[in-house]
């Protein structure tokens, strides 16, 4: 492990560009300059990270827990950051992974999605439960063949990403209409019809 705190290293400040900060991390992630550079990059993105977590969890404490979890994981693996993507993209990938893990820990595999706290009338029907059990590529083919792009996105975000319905409304720009709730209802109806048609075909 590299020795910490070299006296002759120039520590990058808040005015440094992302490229120079990334350069300092890549040069010596464990050295004083590398750690200071990483801290500065985390400082620049931590508020966006927290707000993103808040949008997905809908709660300050849960958002803070998730953001802390993400930052701890990122701090501990910062020496693996190779600079092939932007720091923001790297942090986003960690955040998405940790969020998915949080959801999985709350919901045993194959369990209904309504284990995830949500408004009562947002509880998914068996269509979503069916989707999460199917193989990913088959689900994608089914969605593409059955639903409009906006409906595909709404179902995917709800089913596989665990995004709250209100946040799907915002993410997909559905404000002002019935929001994601209406899109999800339409999507479920279409999926049910498609699955029934398929079931009838199997039964023949």
């Amino acid at each position: 492990m590299t020795e910490r705190g070299r006296g002759d290293t120039k520590v990058p400040g808040s005015a440094a560009t992302e490229a120079s900060l990334v350069g300092a991390i890549r040069e010596d992630a464990r050295g004083t300059a590398g750690r200071a550079a990483a801290a500065e990059l985390f400082r620049r993105h931590q508020e966006a990270l927290y707000l993103w977590c808040h949008r997905l969890t809908g709660d300050h404490d849960r958002a803070l827990d998730l953001a802390q979890d993400v930052l701890l994981a990122a701090c501990r693996s910062v020496e693996n950051f190779e600079g092939r993507s932007s720091f923001k993209s790297w942090l986003f990938a960690i955040a998405r992974f940790r969020f998915a893990r949080t959801l999985r820990s709350k919901r045993p595999p194959g369990a209904p999605l309504d284990a995830v706290p949500d408004a009562e009338d947002d509880a998914p029907g068996p269509e979503e439960e069916f989707l999460v059990r199917e193989e990913e590529e088959r689900v994608i083919a089914l969605l593409r063949g059955t639903l409009e792009p906006q409906e595909q996105d709404a179902i995917w975000l709800r089913c596989f990403e665990g995004v709250p319905v209100d946040e799907i409304t915002r993410l997909l720009g559905l404000e002002g209409r019935s929001g994601a709730r209406g899109v999800l209802q339409t999507a479920r109806r279409k999926l049910r019809a498609a699955l029934e048609a398929r079931g009838a075909g199997e039964g023949d």
Partner: peptide
């Protein structure tokens, strides 16, 4: 649909928009 959903989440990360109700960004910072 899978990648487009990831894109929507990335864009929300890139530009989180207005502070949601109940969020405490100062404390979080």
């Amino acid at each position: 649909p899978k990648c487009r959903s990831a894109l929507a989440l990335f864009l929300a990360f890139d530009d989180p928009g207005p502070v949601p109700a109940g969020a405490k960004p100062r404390e979080a910072r």
